[in-house]
């Protein structure tokens, strides 16, 4: 097992290096000048612009810039934002809690809805409950999150005036009142993401349970005289959860990507909103750092999924 984990880690590291190279190459080969923000300003004389370019190291060929960027990156230095002139790492640290709060709570809610619904749906296949759950799941993952978000705004903010339109990031939780305000402004973003996650995960849970229900060991458990409850909960569910747990891990990066859209709708100041803004501003260091952060998420949760699968399923021998 230890060797397996080690081997997977050794694959993950070169993968990340290749990805970081791809990201940097895409940014470096693009026709957009990273200094276009200065370029638009006619008061900056050309020689000053050249000096800025040189001081930022932009006169060097991009492979060299990549090596420099990457060596700084592994030392934890993500460079400086062109726009705010502050270290990128600080901006990320400042914004990450907002994203984590929304995405994390939403994903937990999604899992908590999906497990029982998927299970009941599979056990009572083709029943009314199953049909309703299946229809809702299909509706859930066929609705783009930005449309759900806009619908919630129309209903709960515009018509009913129950919830605030826009997320207030300066809100400090000091007493019960501000805490309730925080809850109120988080409800819509979390609902949008949570319902989407729940819809996707319900389908996984249901189909995994359905794979296991007709198997021989289930019949054996029943013929031993176990109650149906025990058969489902301690035999079928436990075995079906092995792939479900890995799917939950694999889904985490997609959930973060989904947060880009949700943060945009509700103006939640998280890393997704920061990425979109940085793209429009041409703030290359921020873009590179955030996109790389997303790939670290993808690679590490792939790793987590593989390791979890190995840990949870003793039938598979890894060397």
């Amino acid at each position: 097992m230890g060797r397996y984990i080690l081997r997977r880690l050794l694959v993950a590291i070169p993968t990340l290096i290749v990805i970081s190279f791809i990201i940097y190459a895409v940014l470096a080969l693009s026709p957009i000048d990273p200094l276009s923000a200065f370029g638009a300003d006619p008061r900056v004389p050309p020689e000053v612009r050249e000096n800025i370019r040189r001081s930022l190291g932009l006169d060097q060929p991009w492979p060299i810039r990549y090596v420099k960027w990457f060596t700084a990156l592994i030392q934890g230095d993500l460079g400086y934002s062109f726009m705010s002139h502050s270290p990128v790492i600080g901006l990320i640290v400042q914004r990450l809690p907002n994203t984590l709060a929304v995405v994390g709570v939403a994903y937990v809610i999604g899992v908590l809805i999906a497990l029982p619904v998927g299970m009941i749906s599979a056990v009572k296949r083709y029943s009314l409950v199953d049909q309703v759950a299946t229809t809702f799941a299909f509706i859930g993952f066929s609705t783009p999150t930005f449309f759900t978000g806009l619908l919630l705004i129309i209903i709960f903010s515009v018509n009913l005036h129950w919830l605030p339109f826009i997320y207030n990031s300066n809100l400090k939780i000091e007493d019960l009142g501000s805490f309730l305000q925080q809850v109120k402004q988080s409800i819509m973003p979390i609902t949008v993401l949570g319902l989407f996650d729940a819809a996707v995960l319900t389908r996984y849970v249901r189909s995994e349970m359905l794979e296991h229900l007709p198997l021989d060991y289930v019949r054996t458990a029943r013929s031993k005289g176990l109650r149906e409850r025990a058969v489902i909960l301690s035999h079928v569910l436990r075995n079906s959860l092995i792939p479900v747990v890995t799917l939950i891990a694999l889904g985490v990066p997609a959930v973060f990507a989904g947060a880009i859209v949700t943060e945009q709708i509700f103006r939640v100041p998280g890393i997704g909103e920061m990425l979109v803004r940085a793209i429009f501003d041409g703030d290359i260091p921020v873009v590179a750092a955030v996109v790389f952060l997303f790939s670290v998420l993808v690679v590490s949760f792939n790793l987590v999924a593989d390791v979890l699968y190995a840990v949870l399923d003793p039938r598979i021998k890894y060397t």
Binding site: T15, I22, V291, S295, V299
Partner: peptide
Amino acid sequence: TDVFLSLPVLPLLLVIIYLF
């Protein structure tokens, strides 16, 4: 295939489309 599967699709899409 594994490398492509590890790419963050949505962020990369946004960046590529904006740049090119």
